[in-house]
Each structure stands twice: as structure tokens, then as C-alpha cells.
Design a protein around this nucleic acid. Structure first.
Lengths: 262, 262
DNA sequence: CGCTCAATTGAATGAGCTCAAATCTCGTGG
DNA sequence: CCACGAGATTTGAGCTCATTCAATTGAGCG
């Protein structure tokens, strides 16, 4: 995985909203030198940590999550290549949630001070802010899903979302993408039991809406799946018609041999 | 309701994060001249609108919501005095959700261009960004609630949250506050049926955790309610010890005679 | 004083949960 | 190369929380 290329992914994403000058872009590149590799199923940042860094995904899948006292877990977001992990840095003495890898990941690590310096530039500040707003819009749609949609539809909706998001970063080939989640992860995302998640997934397969082979998800009929899910991609705020040239590789970039996927 | 005072509420909130110069504050005041009064149960901004304005709550309660094709509604946030309604302005050609009043409201209306101008100043831009992040943190906690907590606990948690948020803007007296919601609103917020919301509310009353008189909620034993709800206020990012002097009036500021409350 | 909308209550149904066990996959050690 | 073990998926059965449908009560307005 080429780091420069992945950074371009992030910058391209930001530029989708607001044009950046070469100086701005150079500054972003300059502050993005530190790369970290993190194995699957490990915290990038834990609840309770002092948030000293912002992370940008280069490869792999990560998630934002909270644990309750009784051990239940809610996953609140997935982060895929090109995504910022979080900007909590600016408000918290202590993180109110954890960020963990789902597959092996590479991330760019940017110190808090660098982010502060970057936000001195209005164009960059606005681009960051925009990225935050898109995250929030996605979060809202998840709330709608969990609050109102029934279990099977909810999963279908998520699979539609991931199709669009991964396509936007060149990680979809022929309506097929790598989704390195266990069914337990999926269940904790959707606010349901593993058992129920499994049955709903089964049902979607029986309906011939999707196929699953290992960690690879194939959407058999995009239109029908979107119809079934009541999916409207407006909340993702992807630029219309910005189908990027094939970039990078699959999301589950690195080998991840001990994890048995869906 | 004194407009200047309410603006101070907003500015005080922003300053809680990041100090603002007098020039910054003057600029904020300058762009906040237009006040709108909106009756209860009416859209401030509708899904599909072009987002030309940002609104700041002066008095009353409003909510952010989405409607599904089958008519179901999910309320995704409550906005109380001092809160921004949204910054969608910067990413959307078209709003992806509606904002509606729950009680009669007064709001400051700020044109998009003004917000752009304001964000030229790094301190203001960061303060706005911070406000966005706090909204997002609250949204995350709601997702956790709907995804993981059982119905009764979920409602208790919300009542704890409103107690803290309203206390922060001086709208709580003796653990009692005005919550101008119908049980149907509450149900659509919590992702449950009106019938079930009613029964859970009943159960909380039978447990002597809360009392409800009209639209007035009284928390009988804060510690016990928080314990029951598993409430941890960290996600609200309120400044420790910033108990403001009694400001403004009750949230349901204006008379709202046609609405029968909980 | 009747109308409308909100709150409350009852009864039957159902989506999703719990508990439990079987099967499958894949990496590891012998 | 094969057997084993850990973790993931799949399946079954019974139960419960929450829903649906329906009706009643209550409050405030015209």
C-alpha cells in the first residue's frame, strides 16, 4: 500500500468539498508523515485515553465503539481508507469512546498540535469541518436505521452504504467488496443479537439480494437491494459522478489469518 | 425573552470551549440580528429545502427528524435555548432532514454567507466546530441508547440528559424542568411505540424516580435515576463547575395552549 | 357541551432474545 | 500430513419485550 496514494485519497476527499491550494496540500502532506501499522482487533485509541492524535485510515477497517457497564458493545461507525478516525482531540481531556481495528490497518498519525496548526488555514479548517459533518450525517442515518427499520432491512441498508462508500475509494469491483467483520461485529453495529444477525443475513441470501463468500460481500442486484433497504445515499454527500479511478487494493489489505469472517 | 441575553447564552457556550476576543463576539452579535418566532409543531426548515440559513435557539424546544417512506419518524436531536440548529449549510444542496419546533420558539436566523464570513476567524471557526462535535457526541450516545439499552432505561437516560443540558442554560429549578413533548414525540425519539413509551413512563413514576405534572418533569432522586440509567455525562462536554446564574425563563417560553403535554 | 388530541389501559400477536448445541474453518503442534 | 482446538457460523426451541389493534378516559378549546 502506497502511503502517498492513500494520502491523496484523504486529500481528494477533502477537496471534494472545498478546493485546497497547493500550499494547503503540501502542509497536509507534511503533517502526515508518521504511519502506524496496527493488527486486527486492537484499540487504536481507548476510552479514557488522552486524545493526543488524530488518525487517518490508510488501509483496513476500523470502528468507533462504546462499551456499557454490563459488557454490551455498540459500534457507532466504521472507518475505511481515506476516513478520519476522529477529531475528539479538541474537546476532550479524555476520550468518551474507543477506536479499534477490525482488520489489520495502516493509519497516519497526526499530533494534536499539527491539527491545530492546520486549522489556522480557513480552507483546511472548513474541509475538516465538512468531514465532521459528513460523519455526523452518517451517524444520523444509523440512528434512523436502528430506531425505525426492522432488522433485515437494517442490515440491507448498511450493505448499501458500504457499497457506496467503498466504491468512492475504489475498493469495489463488480458490486463486490471485502467486509472484514464477524457477525458479532455486525450485530453490535445493528443493535441486535449475533443469532438474529445471522438469521437476517441468511434471509437476505435466500432472497438472492446478496452473496457472501468468506469476507467478500457481493450485491447481486443493487437496485433491488436498495429498494428493499429504502436506501437513499444523499446523507453520504458523495460528489455526484466522481467515480475515482481504481485506487489502492481491497480494504482487508493485509493478511488476517486468524480471523474467520462472515 | 431578551434577545441579547439569549445570544450571550450561545456565546457563553462557545466560549466554554475556546476564548473569543471582543471583536469575535461583536461579529457574532452583528450577524445575529434577525429573530424569528415560530409556532409549535411547525418546520423551521424542511427536508429538501436549500439550506440558506443557520438557526440558533433563543427559546423553546425544537427537534431534528427524518421521515421514512412508510411514515415512520425518527427524532435525532433536541435543540434547546443556546443550541445551534444545524450547520448543514456547508455540505448540502438540499437538506437531508427536517427541523421542527416542538413548542413555540424564537430563533436567531443567520444567513449562510454570514456563517462563511464568521468562519474566516479561526477562533470562531474552532468554536463552531467544537459545537458540531458536541452534537455528534450526543448523537452517539443516543445511538448507544437505542441500540443497547432497554426501553425503560433509555427513557431514564434521556431524562438525565435533559436535566443536565437544561441546567447548563439555567432552565432547571429544583430538579424540575419543562419538557414540551408529547409521548408520541418521545416514542419517535426512543425508537418505540407510543403505547410502550407510556407504559415505561408509568413504570418510572411507580418507581418514584420521576414525577410528571403536565409538561413539567421532576426528577425525584437524581442519583437513583442516574444509577438506574447508567448515566455518565461525559459525552455532553459541559464545563465542570460552570453553573450559570439563573438565565432566561422556562424552555416552553411562550404559551402553547393547544398542545396537551405528557 | 361537544370536539379533538393526548394519555392510559387491555389483550393478542410477533419480532427478536436467550440458551444450547452442532457444524465449519483455519491455524498450529505433533 | 493429520489431529486438535479456538473462534465463527448455523440451527432449534422456548420465552419476553415490545408491538398492534382497540377502546376508554382526560383536558382544553371553540
Amino acid at each position: 500500500m502506497d502511503v502517498t496514494q492513500s494520502l491523496n485519497l484523504m486529500i481528494r476527499k477533502l477537496e471534494g468539498f472545498h478546493p485546497l491550494s497547493s500550499a494547503d496540500k503540501d502542509l497536509l502532506q507534511h503533517h502526515s508523515r508518521t504511519i502506524r501499522e496496527i493488527p486486527a482487533r486492537q484499540d487504536i485509541a481507548s476510552e479514557g485515553d488522552r486524545p493526543d492524535f488524530v488518525y487517518v485510515m490508510v488501509s483496513g477497517f476500523a470502528c468507533r465503539y462504546k462499551l456499557l457497564a454490563d459488557g454490551r458493545r455498540q459500534i457507532m461507525a466504521y472507518m475505511v481508507p481515506g476516513d478520519f478516525c476522529d477529531f475528539q482531540v479538541f474537546i476532550l481531556k479524555e476520550r468518551d469512546h474507543g477506536i479499534a481495528t477490525l482488520s489489520n490497518c495502516k493509519v497516519v498519525q497526526i499530533p494534536a498540535e499539527s491539527v491545530l496548526e492546520l486549522t489556522e488555514r480557513p480552507a483546511i479548517a472548513r474541509a475538516f469541518w465538512w468531514a465532521t459533518l459528513v460523519d455526523e450525517a452518517t451517524l444520523r442515518e444509523w440512528l434512523v436505521s436502528i430506531g425505525q427499520r426492522e432488522a433485515e432491512v437494517r442490515i440491507a441498508h448498511l450493505l448499501c452504504e458500504m457499497l457506496m462508500r467503498l466504491r468512492a475509494v475504489g475498493l469495489v469491483e463488480g458490486n463486490s467488496y471485502s467486509l472484514p467483520l464477524t457477525q458479532a461485529d455486525l450485530a453490535d453495529t445493528m443493535g441486535m443479537t449475533v443469532v438474529h444477525a445471522n438469521r437476517m443475513l441468511m434471509s437476505l441470501r435466500e432472497k438472492d439480494l446478496i452473496a457472501i463468500d468468506g469476507r467478500q460481500v457481493t450485491v447481486i442486484d443493487v437496485r433491488r437491494l436498495e429498494e428493499f433497504a429504502g436506501f437513499n445515499p444523499n446523507y453520504l454527500h458523495l460528489q455526484a459522478g466522481s467515480t475515482p479511478k481504481p485506487a489502492a487494493r481491497q480494504a482487508g489489505d493485509d493478511k488476517n489469518p486468524t480471523l474467520q469472517p462472515m
